[in-house]
């Protein structure tokens, strides 16, 4: 920054800003990967920490259940409504079940679960760990030679690795039911036809692929939330910044990873 202050041309500033941003991004990714590695290693102690893991599972999973259900319900309903109108024109309204089930399990379920967890849980992790960081609690843990990745990150990571797929399954089911309701009441597609179509279209790859997605999203949210929190500086403002950043970064990563996992799964067909 001092260099560009000595030579205040706009290009120079832009280049040095970009350079700074890139450096920040690289160090962020590096920190996150390292944290992930250390938390994975710490999973050897998963049984010693089972109480804390259960607590985290409750915080992130059970408490997110109502929101996830509600969002999934309306997603399934709006999907059925949109495609139902089109399908009726071709006299193929029986296929509503096919389309709702496939889009819920392949894309909507995992993504919405990820979005909700990033907003509710990832941000809370960043805020909690960030507060601990700026109030010297993390320092205190380090000085007591308590391993922070093992003590704080691993339980959160494991909890999300379990709860993200679980929530995803619930979201899929509720979404499909939402579609069935709209199909039945608005388009008079019988439940029998709807669910038969829905079950027909779902392959093991769909179900497994959706679970892999939500697992990856869970890991992403936990690691982004924790590492943003642990890197927080400068008091309450820094905690706010870490929280905001954890949500934005998680959301972007979820959509990017989602695309690549989908394209990978397509190759399996």
């Amino acid at each position: 920054m001092d260099a560009s202050a000595g030579n205040p041309s706009a290009v120079n500033t832009a280049v040095s800003n970009l350079g700074g941003w890139l450096l920040g991004a690289v160090s962020r990714v590096g920190y996150g990967m390292l944290l992930l590695g250390r938390a994975l290693l710490a999973m050897r102690a998963v049984f010693c920490k089972s109480r804390e893991i259960l607590r985290q599972m409750f915080i992130c999973g059970i408490a997110s259940l109502p929101v996830t259900m509600l969002v999934a319900l309306f997603t399934g309903m709006v999907l059925a409504l949109q495609v139902g109108i089109e399908l009726m024109r071709y006299g193929a309204k029986a296929e509503i079940g096919t389309i709702v089930a496939a889009s819920m399990c392949r894309e909507m379920g995992p993504i919405w679960t990820g979005v909700i967890l990033a907003a509710r849980v990832g941000s809370a992790m960043a805020a909690e760990l960030g507060t601990m960081k700026v109030s010297e609690e993390i320092d205190a843990l380090e000085v007591m030679s308590i391993d922070v990745p093992r003590f704080l990150v691993m339980p959160r990571l494991v909890a999300l690795m379990i709860m993200a797929p679980v929530l995803n399954v619930y979201a899929n089911i509720v979404g499909i039911i939402g579609g069935a309701l709209v199909g039945y009441y608005q388009m008079s597609v019988s439940y029998h036809v709807y669910f038969n179509k829905a079950l027909d279209v779902l392959t093991l790859t769909d179900i497994f692929g959706g679970l892999v997605k939500s697992l990856v999203f869970g890991v992403t949210i936990a690691i982004v939330g924790c590492s943003e929190g642990l890197r927080a500086t400068e008091g309450a403002v820094g905690v706010g910044r870490a929280t905001r950043r954890s949500v934005v970064v998680s959301l972007i990563l979820i959509l990017v990873f989602n695309y690549f996992i989908t394209s990978f799964i397509r190759h399996l067909y």
């Binding site: 909690e128 507060t131 601990m132 109030s135 010297e136 609690e137 320092d139 205190a140 843990l141 380090e142 000085v143 007591m144 030679s145 308590i146 003590f151």
Partner: peptide, 30 residues
């Protein structure tokens, strides 16, 4: 660090644990 006893200016207790659990923490973890 195992041989150090450190008091931070702010106390630096973990705010999601009771005082008991905070004091017991090094014993439980180490």
């Amino acid at each position: 660090r195992r041989r150090l006893g450190v008091l931070f200016q702010s106390g630096a207790l973990l705010n999601w644990m009771t005082v008991d659990a905070n004091v017991a923490l090094p014993l439980r973890e180490l």
